[in-house]
Amino acid sequence: MNKAIETTDPADATYGPDHPAPVIEPPRARTGRSPRTSRTNYELYGWVFMRMSGILLVVLVITHLLIQLVLDGGVSKVSFAFVAGRWASPFWQAWDLIMLWLAMLHGGNGLRTIINDYAERDTTRFWLKMLLYTATVFTVLLGTLVIFTFDPNIS
């Protein structure tokens, strides 16, 4: 009745008390040298920014999608003239500018926390974050440039 059934064969005889197998360490274990307190509120502000920008983005993005895709003929009405007409008003320029900045910083910060959570090696997380920051800065600057220098009379 009492019997042991081995499902896998541990048939590796090269290890012994003097030569134990290497144990698998989990990534980035906490040691006595781990706490390097930065004494800044950076993570706190990041956390609050995510909540605040999230609430604002719900309003900004849903209204934007309604205007662009649903109301007044839907997506078929969107043309160069439609965009030029909207950006003639400083209100919609400001709307799109705020939406661009908030969405890029919100998404960038979200990706930063995901990289921090899932990239195991320090070099991997460093280069992933550098790539992320470069892409974020590039998109924000390009979008801002377009909003401010948009010329409705371009041929």
Binding site: T7, T8, D9, P10, Y15, P17, A21, P22
Partner: peptide, 26 residues
């Protein structure tokens, strides 16, 4: 009752790999 326990075994002095072992007990 008869219950099977499937236990994750690892012994660095025998093998580098962990494995599942079944024990059926009353």
């Amino acid at each position: 009752v008869t219950v099977t326990f499937r236990i994750r075994r690892f012994n660095p002095e025998e093998a580098a790999e962990a494995f599942w072992q079944d024990f059926e007990i009353r």
